[in-house]
Nucleic acid binder design. Structure first.
Lengths: 391, 391
DNA sequence: GGTCTTGATTAAATCGGTTAACCATCGGCC
DNA sequence: GGCCGATGGTTAACCGATTTAATCAAGACC
């Protein structure tokens, strides 16, 4: 009997049905303890069955169709009838079953958020900030938000497609992916409502909402140059991420690493993490000991870099200026407080939610929002040593 | 016609139906652009309608009940039939509609996460870490996770009840709430599956999974005392939060603030934030300039305190030692790196998910898990000045 | 007064599954 | 041989809403 399961596993459509068949047989007959009646009925009506749309209809002396229309604010319903129905609804404390609504209507009113698995993505203030915006706005517009962690296995079992095919969601947000990620192409090709949050795809026509990374990077470069910095190092994240590419472009176009030096020599990958930022700073300073400023493409890497520089015995900002990007909440509370570019991540979340919902409603025109960024000058930057009077 | 809506608003069961009626009339006839057929059918079968359980049944020459049983791994089905059905399922690339499954079965397989609205809660590494654990485990066990922001309005409109009554979820996680929060009592009384994540309720019988805050606090105190610190200040968060109370208890019981001093005088509320931590540190040092160590009940407050102390011109750790709590990722990358208590937040999330699912399945026995914590010694602590040879 | 609109309401089909109750088959056992 | 209990599968009723096509009432118009 047991092997009838095991030797079946090759044929089983795996995740399509129950994500982890062995783990979750979900045998209906085996649940111990205090099992209630047939269905998890959530007590109601003093022992009777839970009140449904039919009871409302009956009590209000209308048809269920009318009740449904009242629920959905259909303007066809008269003031009087509406009033009558609503009274009954309130009296019986009726609440429409969402699953039933979703099943028979066109929309589930559920949105998915796809996050990459960077260690613990949700724990990252960057994602958290965006997520907050999304959730708040979605809630305001009557939608719920579901989270998904996009691991290799997630793609392999085609969960991204299932999300739609099994009608889990009406649309999804993709945060932190690049053109390399094939699953995004699949989603777009299948014409599912998708929005790219804070990333751009050159090779893909997809709605997106981004911060003005280019503008932010330009502000940083201008600022550093005005402070007299001649040799600047850049710590960036994976170049497949479009925002990183934009920053790198700006950096390279300003030939900011000093005359004669190879540009790519002044850049290092910091892997988006503190640890990586520290390592990148080390590499940069080894190659160019005369670097007076480091520009990190996100705050975490900037913090890592700052940590390294300080441990090296160099002072920030007197010896080396450091600038970050994103303005995540705690950067104001490190010593020295980090100069950075403020990116309106929360607002990006809000805007994305609005856009995605429009798209779900059928708006066909492609959308491309760019939200402004600005420099936040704090303590980690100062005039370049060579430019100082006492130098 | 318009006022028929507005003057109706008093009667309308508000959020029960559409969270924001005015914002979201969702008029089916008004959507512009390329609207597809009747339902969002997600292309299928070369133009035909999407394949359902009946087609599978027909093609496999069995009843829909059999197909359903195969889907649900019901052991009644023979190896042979199962194989046959699965083959058809794979051939037609069939995927059961989740809404339909949820509607007719006892479970939605959706879990809710209730978060407090601390500015942007999700952006907090603390919550993020727990959340990661929850999501990963829930996914592994075939459940999806939904996020909710608990604002005052959320409670007022009784969304917490709706979550269950409208069958959005099978159960919820509550992270970061205290006994003060009446909605938790309501949920427990209604006997809905609820689990308190990293918090304890004395006056409420509710499942919970927590880190060993008491043990962690004891380790901190022991460590500081061994380093010779006689006067220690405590920065804590809101005392309604049980974990904070536990830390405060330990602190108070060790009369660590020096002889003769009023204990409550050595404690200050840091509001869980960096800003608050800085302010609390200021208050403490004003009251007790001879403080040689500050123990903050979370890392964010510790960072704030450290920031303030350093700005004051005092050195950390030479003049003042600082200890945090939680070990959120970036504390290792500030200067000096923060000594803190590691709390297995990710694991707390994982364990909570397991527990909640068990509870949903009907396990009736109350659960109380305590996960161990441990001290992470880094650079922000050292021997007390008075205890040093050179003092 | 009769017919034509127009607009509100309803009956019935549908969405896509699950499950309780029932039934056929077959080997085992007295 | 006849009765019994498994085993494996089917039938048909549901879950709780939405939506379409049909109906009915009431004014509008000639």
């Amino acid at each position: 009997m047991l092997n009838c399961f095991t030797n079946m596993s090759t044929l089983s459509p795996q995740s399509l049905l129950q994500p982890d068949p062995v783990d979750e047989p979900f045998d209906p007959s085996s649940s111990s303890g205090s099992t209630p009646g047939r269905r998890a009925s959530g007590r109601r009506d003093g022992g009777g069955k839970r009140v449904g749309i039919r009871e409302i209809a009956q009590r209000a002396e209308v048809s269920t169709a009318t009740v449904s229309m009242v629920l959905n604010q259909n303007p066809k319903i008269t003031d009087a009838t509406r009033r009558r129905v609503l009274r009954v609804i309130n009296e019986l404390d009726y609440r429409p079953n969402r699953q039933a609504q979703a099943l028979s209507s066109k929309y589930t009113r559920m949105l998915g958020v796809l996050l990459p698995t960077l260690r613990h993505a949700v724990a990252d203030p960057y994602f958290g900030e965006v997520l907050s915006g999304i959730i708040d706005r979605a809630a305001k517009r009557g939608h719920k938000v579901m989270l998904e962690n996009v691991k290799p296995d997630f793609i392999k079992t085609r969960q991204h497609i299932e999300l739609f095919e099994r009608r889990y969601v009406d649309g999804v947000f993709c945060i932190g992916f690049g053109g390399r990620h094939a699953f995004m192409h699949e989603l777009v090709e299948a014409e599912y409502p998708v929005i790219a949050v804070n990333s751009i795809f050159d090779d893909l026509t997809i709605d997106h909402v981004v911060c003005d990374y280019r503008g932010g990077a330009e502000q940083v470069m201008t600022c550093l140059k005005q402070l007299g910095h001649g040799r600047i190092g850049l710590i960036h994240g994976a170049p497949v991420v479009s925002t990183q590419r934009m920053i790198m472009d700006v950096f390279a176009s300003q030939t900011a690493c000093g005359q004669g030096a190879d540009i790519s020599d002044c850049m290092a990958d910091g892997l988006f993490t503190e640890r990586g930022g520290a390592d990148a700073a080390e590499a940069l300073l080894k190659r160019h000991p005369d670097l007076t400023a480091i520009f990190a493409a996100n705050d975490k890497m900037a913090l890592g870099a700052m940590h390294y520089v300080q441990h090296l015995g160099r002072r920030v900002p007197q010896d080396v200026s450091i600038v970050g990007f994103d303005d995540i909440p705690h950067t104001a509370f490190v010593t020295p407080a980090l100069t950075t570019i403020h990116t309106p991540l929360y607002e990006v979340g809000v805007a994305s939610a609005d856009r995605l919902i429009e798209r779900i409603r059928g708006k066909a025109d492609p959308i491309s929002d760019v939200l402004p960024t600005h420099l936040v000058l704090r303590e980690s930057t100062s005039i370049a040593p060579a430019a100082r009077p006492d130098a």
